[in-house]
């Protein structure tokens, strides 16, 4: 890397600081809002607690003490739905990705080869959700899956698999086959080679798939709204529900949003170095 000139550095840092500000300001605003009384919001913007308004912890207390059980139930529901579907999607997706990377398929009906199959799988991600909501609701009530964790896990798995297949297939394409082949020669079964050799080497890919799946399921709103009624309702639906006839409860929305975002950001911080590496895939080297 050549040395940057001073103005290039200045520009670089300016851009970085500016974009950090754009990114972080809404989070800061949510934070201050969660400490405000209604009048602090409806009578003009107040910026800094203690400086231009007297903050209150009562909204946090309401959510975590009086309503603690409800808040935690929704949090747990989100967690179960998101992690369940993430595990399934990573497993099923990496299997399919491996299959598509290592084997040649040619179906008779329809006459599809690997690329067509891959495209079909990925295209599932883009089906208009409105097409699914009503039939799913009917299907689910017939099967007794409405308002269950399993129900949400199934839908989210369905939407996470395509992304998982796409990333993992690319990833496996960059992995040399030599290692598996020598394992196979040494008498390992294909499955053993996959689990013991290929998957460990694919950790970055698996991590980025897992994070994307988790974030998607964690934040999904439409299906969660329609397919849950009570027991299995997730955080986004709870957040959306803070708009009632008493006005939009900005302080609750803010506090709940921060609560929902915190664990994902922490996980993101811990696994940051994996994410980009995982997505590197075979995208460039052709």
């Amino acid at each position: 890397m050549t040395r940057r000139k001073w103005w290039q550095s200045a520009l670089l840092y300016a851009v970085v600081i500016f974009w950090c500000f754009i990114t972080l300001f809404p989070f800061y605003w949510l934070f201050t809002t969660s400490l405000k009384q209604p009048l602090h919001i409806s009578r003009g913007p107040k910026y800094v607690p203690f400086v231009d308004y007297q903050p209150t912890l009562e909204h946090w207390q309401y959510l975590f003490r009086e309503q603690g059980e409800t808040t935690i139930r929704h949090f747990r529901n989100s967690f179960i739905a998101a992690s369940g579907s993430t595990i399934l999607a990573v497993l099923i997706g990496s299997m399919a990705g491996y299959g598509l990377s290592r084997f040649r398929y040619s179906w008779r009906i329809p006459r599809w080869k690997n690329n067509d199959i891959a495209f079909w799988i990925i295209s599932q991600r883009f089906l208009p959700p409105a097409l699914f909501v009503v039939p799913f609701l009917m299907l689910y009530s017939a099967l007794g899956l409405v308002d269950t964790h399993i129900g949400l896990i199934i839908v989210y798995t369905m939407f996470n698999i395509p992304f998982a297949v796409w990333i993992m297939r690319d990833f496996f394409n960059t992995l040399p086959t030599d290692l598996e082949e020598s394992a196979l020669v040494d008498g390992a079964t294909r499955w053993q080679a996959f689990v013991r050799i290929v998957l460990p080497l694919s950790a970055p890919g698996l991590v980025s798939v897992a994070i994307f799946s988790f974030v998607f399921s964690w934040n999904e709103f439409l299906y969660a709204l329609m397919l849950t009624n009570f027991q299995a309702i997730t955080m986004p639906v709870l957040i959306a529900a803070q708009n009632n006839t008493r006005g939009i409860q900005w302080w609750f929305i803010s506090a709940l949003t921060l609560t929902a975002v915190a664990p994902v950001v922490i996980v993101g911080l811990l696994l940051e170095r994996f994410i980009t590496r995982g997505l590197v895939a075979g995208a460039i080297k052709g």
Partner: peptide, 8 residues
């Protein structure tokens, strides 16, 4: 079932 919040 009803709407959210303290009211109702």
């Amino acid at each position: 079932v009803t709407q959210t919040g303290r009211s109702i």
